[in-house]
């Protein structure tokens, strides 16, 4: 290498690839190298698959009552034992996961979509921000459980009620996160540069602002997912959830709590499934944050 090249890194010999700065590892590569993240992903994959494949893995109606088979401890016949009505807990947990994870997914999708749209608008337009943030303050000051109970009272306990009320409750914190990120991004020079190029506002959102805030949104989504699963379980547990005719982990726990001393496995397995889901989602969220925002990781 000649002296000129050494002192001026900008001199590009035509087509020489070596002149470029080396590429950083991709997010995916860093995810693979992170044991916590990988463990959470594997755990979530197992839970999701077992829920999706429940009709194959545990065929038959999970709600079928069999009084003769009450309180059978876990064993070869019933992997997770049976409950007070003789229902197979293995079937209950697998089929219950379908509901719990479905509610989590739908609530996350609804609340995050609304939060992203409103948060982006709120962060970008000052006048809208003033109004919207007061509404969010009001929403956050209102206890979610009370709102959900009221909703169940009006609409009757059903899956729609649970999804609606959880979505509304969970919009506010996500909206705050998105808004805060957009507030930072809108001041970046690339936004001013894009405006000077003549990029229209909608394109500014889709091509510049949203990609820049996608990492915190992804992290937030994983926490919202876990909050939604937990929320559904909580609502079902206190009886304002999806109703007794449907199965979910929360519903399974409701009845099980009366027999906790007699047959602890009735509580153990739905509780364990719930706990592992929440744990995996939260750990995944934490590692995603570390991976996507290295500044936060270094500060620790």
């Amino acid at each position: 290498m000649t002296f000129t090249q050494a002192t001026s890194p900008d001199r590009l010999p035509g087509g020489d690839e070596e002149a470029f700065v080396t590429t950083n590892k991709t997010v995916w590569q860093r995810l693979l190298a992170n044991p916590t993240a990988m463990a959470s992903i594997v755990m979530l994959a197992v839970l999701t698959l077992s829920a999706v494949l429940a009709p194959l893995l545990a065929p038959g109606n999970p709600l079928r009552v069999s009084p003769a088979d009450r309180f059978i401890p876990p064993g070869a016949e019933h992997f997770f034992g049976t409950d007070n009505l003789g229902r197979d807990m293995f079937k209950m947990v697998l089929h219950g996961g379908r509901t719990s994870l479905f509610v989590g997914l739908v609530v996350t999708a609804i609340s995050m979509s609304i939060a992203v749209v409103l948060g982006a608008i709120s962060g970008f337009y000052r006048q809208v921000d003033v109004v919207l943030m007061r509404l969010v303050d009001g929403l956050m000051a209102f206890p979610g459980i009370v709102l959900a109970t009221a909703a169940a009272g009006i609409m009757g306990p059903s899956m729609t009620t649970v999804i609606t009320s959880l979505s509304i409750v969970l919009i506010a914190p996500s909206l705050r996160v998105v808004r805060g990120q957009v507030l930072v991004v809108r001041e970046l020079q690339m936004i001013e540069a894009a405006r000077s190029v003549g990029v229209p506002t909608l394109r500014l959102f889709t091509r510049y602002i949203l990609p820049a805030v996608s990492s915190p949104i992804l992290v937030q989504a994983s926490f919202i997912f876990s909050a939604a699963v937990l929320g559904e379980a909580g609502l079902s547990f206190i009886g304002v959830g999806i109703g007794p005719k449907e199965l979910s982990w929360g519903n399974a726990l409701t009845e099980a709590r009366n027999y906790i001393a007699q047959a602890p496995w009735i509580v153990l397995f739905p509780g364990l499934a719930l706990m592992l889901t929440i744990l995996a989602l939260n750990l995944l969220g934490d590692s995603l944050r570390d991976i996507l925002d290295p500044r936060l990781a270094r500060r620790r």
Binding site: M190, R207, P211
Partner: peptide, 8 residues
């Protein structure tokens, strides 16, 4: 460093 969109 700031005027180009890092994702484009």
């Amino acid at each position: 460093f700031g005027s180009l969109n890092p994702r484009m």
